[in-house]
């Protein structure tokens, strides 16, 4: 299963589901809706947080948090 953490820089994916319920509520509020397009913009050095483009703006989240976001294959 492909997750948001597997995206390469400038690669896009479609959000399918979330594996972490508590975190998913927050992500959904921030506009990461199932079915929406998400693009990895850049990553902080040393496996730091990721910056993604979603719903027309930029959002950052940690790599392990990104792992809980499953993408469509």
């Amino acid at each position: 299963m492909k997750s948001l953490a597997d995206l390469k820089v400038s690669e896009k994916g479609i959000i399918k589901s979330f594996s972490d319920e508590a975190l998913s509520v927050k992500l959904i509020e921030m506009g990461c809706l199932p079915g929406s397009e998400i693009e990895l913009n850049f990553a902080a050095p040393f496996n730091g947080p990721l910056a993604v483009k979603v719903a027309g703006y930029h959002l950052s989240l940690r790599k392990e948090e990104a792992r809980s976001v499953t993408l469509e294959d």
Binding site: L27, A51, Y57, H58, L59, S60, L61, E65
Partner: peptide, 10 residues
């Protein structure tokens, strides 16, 4: 748990 979901404003 600590979360790090944050907007990067323009």
């Amino acid at each position: 748990r600590s979360y790090f979901v944050m907007e990067l404003p323009d």
